Simulated scan of single mutants.
Amino acid sequence: MSFNKLSIIVPAYNEGRTIHLILDKIKEVDLVNNINKEVIIVNDHSTDDTEAAIHRYIAANPELDIKYYFHEVNKGKGAALHTGISKATGEYLIIQDADLEYDPQEYNHILKPVVSGFADVVYGSRFMGGRPHRILFFWHTIGNKFLTTLSNACTNLNLTDMETCYKLFNTKIIQSLTLREKRFGFEPEVTTKISRVPKIRIYEVGISYYGRTYEEGKKIGWKDGFRAIYCILKYGMFGAQ
C-alpha cells in the first residue's frame, strides 16, 4: 500500500532542553516509499522556554513541514494529542513524545505492516523484540503490564504494551473517534475505542526504549496509573462513549 504523507504529532510540555534534539531526529528520518513528513507540535502551555526553542527551530529549518499550536492553558497530554490529531492531514499519523525515550529511526519499522497492506493501526511495543531497552523501574514495568492485561481483558486484544507512546493510526479512522481523556487516560481510551471499529486491523511491532528517570524529566506517576485503571473500566468494561 502506498500513501503520500505521515503526520507526526509531538505533544510538548516543558521540553525546552530537548525539543530541538527530537526534531533533529525526526528530520533525519527518510521514510520508506518517499513518504513525506508533516510535523505537528502542540505546546501544552509550557512554563519553560519550549516555545522559544520551537520558534528558533522552525526559523532555522524552513524546508521542514512543521505546524505549531499553543494551548493557552495547560490541559494535559491527551488534550495536546486531540489538537494534533484534529490538525493532521497525512493519510496516517504517529505519536512522538518530545523527550528522547523513543527513536524516530524506527518509523519505517512501525510503518512496515501498513505499507505491506496488512494494518490500519500499529503499536510499537517496548516488551517484545530484540531492540535496546534501558533498565529502569521494576514497579513501573509491572504496572504497565498490569494495565495492558486489564485493557486486553476488556478489549479482547492481545497487546503487550498498551501504554506505549508509539501508536500509528489511519488518520481518518482516529479522527472519526470521539476522544475525551485530556491527560494520560488517552492511552486506554483510544485503545478501547479503536478496538471497537469494525474490521480494524491492529498490529504490534517491537521497538527500542531509552527511558528517562524522574530526575531527567519523566512525568508519569502513580496517580496516572490509577486514572488509567479508571479509564479502562469506564470505556472498556462499562462501555462509556
Rank of each mutant, 00 (worst) to 15 (best):
Met162Thr: 14
Gly143Pro: 08
Val205Arg: 00
Arg212Phe: 05
Glu204Phe: 02
Glu28Tyr: 11
Met128Cys: 04
Asp65Trp: 01
Ile232Asn: 02
Ile95Ser: 02
Val32Gly: 03
Phe70Arg: 03
Tyr123Pro: 04
Val29Ser: 05
Asn33Asp: 10
Phe226Tyr: 13
Ala12Glu: 14
Leu233Gln: 02
Ala153Asn: 06
Gly16Gln: 11
Tyr102Cys: 07
Ile40Glu: 11
Glu187Asn: 08
Glu189Phe: 06
Pro198Glu: 02
Ile94Trp: 00
Asn4Tyr: 05
Asp30Met: 07
Gln175Trp: 04
Thr50Val: 03
His71Pro: 12
Ala80Gln: 09
Glu204Tyr: 01
Asn36Pro: 10
Gly143Lys: 15
Phe118Val: 06
Gly143Ser: 11
Ile174Met: 14
Ile229Lys: 14
Ala98Lys: 05
Ile220Glu: 10
His82Thr: 00
Ser2Gln: 13
Thr18Val: 15
Tyr203Pro: 00
Leu31Ile: 06
Gln241Arg: 05
Arg131His: 05
Ile85Trp: 08
Pro62Asn: 14
Glu15Gln: 13
Asn4Asp: 15
Met128Ser: 01
Gly143Gln: 10
Glu101His: 08
Phe184Glu: 04
His140Pro: 00
Leu64Tyr: 03
Arg131Ile: 01
His55Phe: 13
Asp99Asn: 13
Gly76Tyr: 04
Ser7Arg: 08
Gly129Lys: 00
Gly16Asp: 07
Ser86Asn: 09
Glu38Met: 03
Gly117Leu: 11
Cys154Lys: 09
Leu93Lys: 05
Ser151Glu: 12
Thr160Gln: 01
Glu91Lys: 15
Ile26Cys: 03
Ile142His: 04
Cys231Thr: 14
Ala59Lys: 09
Asp44Gln: 05
Glu189Arg: 07
Leu179Gln: 09
Ile95Met: 07
Phe169Cys: 06
Val115Cys: 07
Ile58Met: 15
Tyr68Thr: 06
His109Met: 00
Ile142Asp: 08
Leu111Lys: 02
Gly117Ser: 05
Tyr230Gln: 15
His71Tyr: 02
Val122Cys: 03
Gly239Trp: 05
Lys5Ile: 07
Pro113Met: 05
Gly78Glu: 02
Val10Asp: 10
Val10Gly: 12
Gly221Leu: 07
Lys67Cys: 06
Ala240Glu: 13
His45Ala: 12
Ala153Gln: 15
Tyr92His: 06
Asp44Pro: 07
Glu216Asp: 11
Leu150Gln: 12
Met128Lys: 11
Ser176Glu: 12
Tyr209Ala: 00
Thr47Cys: 08
Tyr57Asp: 06
Glu15Pro: 02
Phe137Val: 08
Tyr209Met: 00
Asp99Phe: 08
Lys112Met: 06
Leu93Met: 12
Phe118Tyr: 13
Ser208Ala: 02
Glu28Asp: 11
Asn36Phe: 03
Lys75Gln: 13
Ile207His: 00
Val73Met: 06
Ser125Cys: 04
Phe169Pro: 04
Glu187Arg: 09
Ser46Arg: 13
Lys25Ser: 09
Lys112Trp: 04
Tyr57Pro: 09
Gly124Tyr: 00
Lys67Asp: 03
